[in-house]
Each structure stands twice: as C-alpha cells, then as structure tokens.
Amino acid sequence: MKLKRNIAISDSGFVFNPSTGDSYSLNPVGLEILTLAKAQKNKDEIRQYMLDNYLLDLDTFEKDFDDFANMLDHFNLIEK
C-alpha cells in the first residue's frame, strides 16, 4: 500500500488531497496507520507495529486493515 506522494496529513487526523481538493478525517487508529504508510512502511511492518502496540488480534487487524486500504483506494489516495 503506497500512499500518493502529495497527500498531506495533519497531526489532528485531517487529510488533504491537493490534486482534487478533497479532505478527509481520520480516527486515531486510522491516523496511526496512515502515518506509517506515509513513512513507507509496508503491510507486514504496519501489522507488527499494530499488534505490538494495541490490544488487537491478528484476524481483527487483517479484516480492518483490508477494509481501510479499500477505502483509501476508493478515495484515490494510494498509488495503483
């Protein structure tokens, strides 16, 4: 999952896509994952980080991460 280069993310969970003018909001976990993606972490690294730091099981992570990634794709925020 590679975030588009020009996507801006603020500390408060606000996302802006300058090429379309669209903006988005993230909840804290969404912000955490998107920040890792912005730092070029791949899915394996993100998974490890999340399991280490959150009260979370593997199945829940997989289900939620895939859905989240689909939404990023839906909003055109990741490179194809």
Binding site: V15, D22, S23, Y24, S25, L26, N27, P28, V29, G30, E32, I33, L34, M50, D52, N53, Y54, L55, L56, T60, D64, F65, D67, F68, M71, L72, F75
Partner: peptide, 14 residues
C-alpha cells in the same frame, strides 16, 4: 501497556 484499539476509519468531509 497496550493501547485501546478501535477500527481505523477514514471519512470524506463534506
């Protein structure tokens, strides 16, 4: 101690 987890959410602002 680990942090409380909530499903990641992204929402378009309108």
């Amino acid at each position: 101690s680990k942090k409380q987890y909530e499903r990641p959410v992204i929402q378009q602002l309108r």
